[in-house]
Write a protein that binds this DNA or RNA. Structure first.
Length: 583
RNA sequence: GGAUCGGUAGUUCAGCUGGUUAGAAUGCUGCCCUGUCACGGCAGAGGUCGCGGGUUCGAGUCCCGUCCGGUCCGCCA
């Protein structure tokens, strides 16, 4: 070993010991006759002190050649400091070196290796190995490690087995685009990388592994976001002989365990909300319930006056922002601009201030008198000091826009503290979703999700109204996990593919292996998967998942450090039997 | 596929309505400094203003195109 101790562990009790520590030079402070080196590793920083009057020439010379991020090994005696520092854990001691060995010189790094670095995202990603030396990134990865360990502890204690599933699998047209891998031995044919191990975990259930989990990489070739990477990690789980309630209880338990062991927080039992209510009261299937500000529908209150916008609207709906009546004209204009941005897409915003003196002033006073506005306030349950914000239009669009406005107001009013955690389940998702683009139904969750038995009779008459045994876990407005009770019967699965527009032949070709397996004794089963990266970033108080992944990709799906993706040699292409079309 | 913000010293940024030699901080180099710990002081080096074209007497600044990066919409069973 090139060290006896780490840079973070020496204390007063080690004084007079001779030790060897190794690490990176954080900085050198040369005061002429006194010279200090801060030596850093994963565990902390230890100060090396050289008194040039007493120290050996070689040591002084070695110290004066050091630059930032040189890798060195120092042997010397631990001493109590003459002037101590309370800023670092080793601040009471320092080392007087008998020997300094330069293990490797270093170029000056392009950005500072400090908590508050001066490096932008771009340059940090290009030199990610330097970025990883910084405390915040290291702590994020330590958190991720702790989350994985505690996940395994919890699931292992409940008899879950971690089983690996293949990464080279088969492409299917449903869902996200697949990443695809050409097969050299089977020219013209391709593997796909899994979007999730869905069918394999179901086959494991049929194989008798009644409790499975896997912390597993999944791949989706879709456009990226701050919370979306092309390769990402799931905590993938499945259980046999269970009903929805069992799954909810088991995995609510996992999240409670993680909060308790990783963050030291006791969270209350998760509340549940139906998909229908989530849409009606929050305009969103993953509502942030750290704050109320529920939607209030106003159709019956506002219609019938001369205000055409409201009269023509399919839905008039608003929120009541507590204590925001003092908002200035400028702030209200900002909000109006906000909802009119193309990404939000509202055509305008109506507001009404319930002033502290009891009067109500609205942006549509031309059409509504004080008495009308009082009725609005009653419907909103607004109090003096509140601000009512109202949008109108086509139901789905209006809900979506108001949902954005609600989140914006929540942020502006400081109701979305990242250290407060509101966890809940959204349940009773629809089984199917109509796609205008393809003029057919798509599976809302995935094609293996079972309909609710009580809705099954609607499957022919009104497929869009069938509810599924599907559920999402939502924390602070982030969908951290989701799953369903699966179909385990060949006829029902076949009917499902039917509804999704598969021919019998297509269904058999793509999912025949699963439907055949259903005929050999498939137990009732269900499960869910958590987005591990998102869960980690949420625990770490961040919205961007990149810094919870050691080597992430950028917005364009590129790894700027290794510069991938990249072209491959013609010989490789030939071997694979692949020609590349020039754009 | 679309919207939007950005690209100026190694790095993070400023640079107004177009106008002399493009600035600051930090980092880097050299010298000085006996208790620093974001050490301090003095001096110095460091620029294809992303790239291409255009407007103009004159472009970092205005216009068009393009590349790169961020955020969002679409997309993500």
């Amino acid at each position: 070993m090139l060290r006896t101790h780490t840079c973070g562990e020496l204390r007063m009790k080690n004084v007079t010991e001779t030790v060897t520590i190794s690490g990176w030079v954080q900085g050198v402070r040369d005061k002429g006759s006194l010279l200090w080196i801060d030596l850093r590793d994963r565990y902390g920083i230890t100060q090396i002190t050289i008194e040039t009057e007493n120290a050996a020439k070689e040591i002084i010379e070695a110290a004066r050649t050091l630059g930032r991020e040189y890798v060195i090994s120092v042997t010397g005696k631990v001493a109590e400091r003459y002037s101590k520092s309370d800023k670092i854990a080793t601040g009471d001691i320092e080392i007087y070196p008998d020997n300094i060995t330069i293990l490797n010189a270093a170029l000056t790094p392009p950005f500072t290796i400090e908590d508050e670095t001066d490096g932008g995202d771009d340059i940090r990603m290009k030199y990610r190995y330097l970025d990883l030396r910084r405390n915040p990134v290291r702590k994020n990865l330590e958190l991720r490690h702790r989350m994985a360990i505690e996940t395994r502890n919890y699931l292992d204690s409940l008899n879950f087995l971690e089983v690996e599933t293949p990464v080279l699998i088969k492409s299917t047209p449903e869902g996200a685009r697949d990443f695809v891998v050409p097969s050299r031995m089977n020219q013209g044919e391709f593997y796909a990388l899994p979007q999730s191990p869905q069918t394999f975990k179901q086959l494991l259930m049929i194989g008798g592994f009644d409790r499975y989990y896997q912390i597993v990489k999944c791949f989706r070739d879709e456009d990226l976001r701050a919370d979306r990477q092309p390769e990402f990690t799931q905590i993938d789980c499945e259980m046999a002989f269970v009903e929805q309630e069992d799954i909810l209880q088991t995995f609510e338990g996992l999240v409670c365990h993680l909060f308790k062991t990783v963050k030291g927080i006791d969270i209350p039992a998760l509340t549940r909300m139906t998909y229908a209510d989530a849409m009606k009261f929050y305009g969103n299937d993953k509502p942030d319930i750290r704050f109320e500000m529920k939607f209030v529908e106003l159709n019956s209150v506002v219609k019938g006056k001369d205000f055409k916008v409201f009269n023509d609207a399919q839905l008039v709906v608003g929120i009541c922002a507590k204590g925001a009546a003092e908002y200035s004209r400028k702030q209200l204009d900002e909000l109006t601009e906000y909802v009119k941005r193309p990404q939000i897409g509202a055509t305008g915003l109506v507001y009404a201030r319930y002033n502290a003196d009891g009067t109500i002033k609205s942006s549509v006073d031309k059409f509504y008198n004080e008495e009308d506005l009082k009725k609005w306030a009653q419907t909103f349950d607004a109090k003096p000091g509140d601000l009512m914000l109202i949008l109108a239009g086509e139901t789905n669009k209006t809900r979506k826009a108001l949902s954005e406005l609600r989140l914006e107001m929540g942020t502006r009013l400081g109701l979305r503290d990242k250290n407060t955690f509101a966890c809940h389940w959204v349940i009773d998702f629809p089984l199917l979703e109509w796609s205008e683009e393809t003029s057919r139904f798509h599976a809302m969750h995935h094609p293996f999700t079972s309909p609710k038995p009580e809705d099954i009779e609607l499957i022919d008459s009104a497929p869009g109204e069938v509810r599924a045994n599907a559920y999402d876990m939502v924390i602070n407005g982030v969908e951290v996990g989701g799953g369903s009770i699966r179909i385990f019967n060949k006829q029902l699965q076949s009917r499902m593919f039917d509804l999704l527009g598969f021919t019998k032949e297509e269904a058999q070709a793509q999912f025949g292996f699963l439907m055949n397996a259903f005929e050999f004794g498939a137990p009732p089963h269900g499960g869910l998967a958590f987005g591990f990266d998102r869960l980690c970033s949420l625990f770490g108080g961040a919205e961007v998942i990149r810094d919870f992944i050691a080597f992430p990709k950028n917005n364009s799906g590129r790894d700027v450090m290794i510069d991938s993706p990249s072209p491959i040699a013609q010989a490789q292409l030939d071997e694979l039997g692949i020609g590349v079309k020039k754009p």
